[in-house]
Design a binder for these strands. Structure first.
Lengths: 353, 353
DNA sequence: CTGTTAGCGCCTTCAA
DNA sequence: TTGAAGGCGCTAACAG
């Protein structure tokens, strides 16, 4: 009966392996890393490692190597589809590169976001990815002060390494589409301007493309939260404007509207059109399926991760833009003739399911 | 103009602080940990640390301390609502306890799940939480072999530290409800039995409660994938049985059915009832809102994390069960009188939105 | 090709 | 109370 199984893998050190293989520590180390040893010893070492299940101590190794192969990821929240997709994309790039993501959640608070960045930098991660809810001057200062490379997404700011979907362009896409469909009066159900990307850029893009050179065009604004219940409860207000289409700043918001309209017996799109942003799968299950601008968050994640890797390698890369896809589904009705959108405006529109 | 700002926080070591404060390394160390020094020196050190922004090197510290304050979390996938909620719950417990989660995704592959567990144990995490898609004998062997404590969720297995929702009970809850509503013939749209929790337990619970002591009761089975498109495409098959209710093993599956029925002009619940499992928010937005058994994955996450913390502390705790809530919404119709369910079967039913 | 020798930055006896 | 010294496990010169 053998006493030493390959349990307690943690306990043995490189010295133990060296002893059992009858070589020195450094030889084992070389075997593990570069490899500059005779086939014979290599084989002896391999055998010992095999049977003991030895694994190098992570912390000792990192202490020497001065790099953790860890990327800190600061997230606004955990239970969100887009965050999930983003993470999925990030992992896809990080893993094959030998890096590992480590998370910290900031509960949508900018302050905590900064704390988390600090915490990661103290922990000695090799890079920090921040999915921000709002970049403050302190973010900028901190980023420049820190040694470790940072990449931001979700929000954008001059002077920082950023990569996010083009909310303004997304807004324009929707605005152009609706004017083509002949709509003249729209209700825009937006969110707080504190979220610059969604609250300001997305809305502005929509308004610009929808109204540009059309004095008769009109957009009414209503502010809501991100969840569909808050949108749902705004139903009466929305109807009071007498518009022909309601645009929610996110699909969730639009779904809330859809549900309200359904209960009120208002048919979509016959009586009123509805559209959103995000292109979530759920938009395809509801009836009518929601017309939306699709954001490929997984791709965002992949590009952000690549940007991170490049930054670590000392390369300041520029990974082009992120494509936007227009999902023309069932919730928007054509009214009258429509106004042609500016040339090329529909170039990136693609119909997906 | 000061040359040394508090940038490069990483670079200074405990020795630097000691020098600037005019004390020895060990004094600084003591200040940082236990505290067994004169107020005077303590103050000097505090000041230096304050102005330099010094932070102890994470890896050096861990190398000495023999504990990482890191919990490895092995996930089947990243882009899923339930995983997001679970993580959210885990974080809620881990963070205040000074622990941090670190993730590895196994892409729904059991093999990779094992690799990931191994990887974490090599990295010296203090504990590993596994949201499993299927526990194999190798999982069991590995778990017993490893030094580090493991906690499983998603699946259950004798001899392992597990905590998951009671799929069998959830199935029973649904079965009992439907028989009470007078249904006699149901179609169960289930998933592969490889997923023991969902594919076997949940289904069995449903069948048992639905048919027990009712020879006339009948359940027809159809196997599908987890996504709603695959369920959607099974529409014709489902209808061919002529049942009065369709039960999807997950809400996603049921949503696919709902969409199919809607397109075919079949009214729910008038012509056919539909129900699911999960209680996702989306189920409340569709029309009719989906009746479902609600799983509080965030709570699961919290309990799993607590179990982990206890295990680390050497305590083998038993955190009771997880409550199930029945969401009686709009998609199931009452037919005839119904059969009373076994006594107490509805005890844990609660109506949430 | 290989073993010896230094540390990486920190914590922790051990004397003083 | 404090400082000196040793060592956690590993890698990377440096001589052989």
């Amino acid at each position: 009966m053998k006493r030493e199984s390959n349990a307690d893998a943690q306990k043995l050190t490189i010295q133990d392996i060296a002893d059992r293989a009858g070589v020195s520590k450094s030889t084992v180390s070389r075997y593990l890393n570069q490899g500059y040893i005779s086939d014979e010893k290599a084989e002896r070492i391999r055998a010992v490692i095999e049977e003991t299940g030895y694994q190098a101590n992570f912390f000792a190794k990192r202490l020497k190597m001065k790099q953790s192969k860890l990327i800190g990821i600061v997230l606004p929240r955990m239970d969100s589809v887009s965050v999930g997709k983003l993470l999925s994309g990030v992992g896809r790039i990080l893993e094959p590169a030998g890096y590992q993501g480590i998370l910290l959640v900031s509960g949508l608070r900018q302050e905590k976001e900064i704390e988390n960045i600090l915490k990661f930098s103290q922990q000695g991660v090799d890079g920090i990815i921040v999915d921000s809810v709002g970049i403050t001057p302190r973010h900028v200062a901190l980023t420049q002060q820190l040694e470790v490379p940072l990449v931001y997404t979700g929000q954008q700011r001059e002077g920082l390494r950023c990569l996010k979907i083009d909310d303004y362009a997304a807004g324009r896409l929707m605005g152009a589409y609706l004017r083509q469909m002949g709509h003249v009066h729209a209700v825009f159900l937006g969110v707080s301007e504190k979220d610059h990307a969604v609250g300001v850029e997305r809305k502005q893009g929509f308004v610009d493309a929808f109204t540009e050179g059309r004095p008769e065009a009109q957009v009414s604004f209503v502010e809501t939260g991100f969840d569909f219940f808050s949108a749902y409860s705004l139903g009466p207000t929305i109807l009071s404007f007498g518009a022909t289409v309601v645009v929610g700043a996110t699909d969730n918001i639009s779904l809330g509207v859809l549900r309200y309209l359904h209960e009120r017996g208002i048919r979509v799109p016959r009586d009123l059109s509805v559209a959103g942003f995000g292109g979530y799968d759920v938009g395809a299950v509801v009836y009518p399926a929601l017309t939306s601008v699709y954001f490929d968050y997984e791709l965002v994640g992949m590009k952000v991760a690549q940007l991170m890797l490049d930054a670590i390698a000392g390369i300041e890369s520029d990974l082009g833009g992120l494509p936007l896809h227009f999902l023309e589904r069932e919730s928007v009705r054509r009214i009258g003739a429509g106004t042609e959108a500016p040339v090329g405006e529909r170039a990136v529109c693609t119909a997906l399911i």
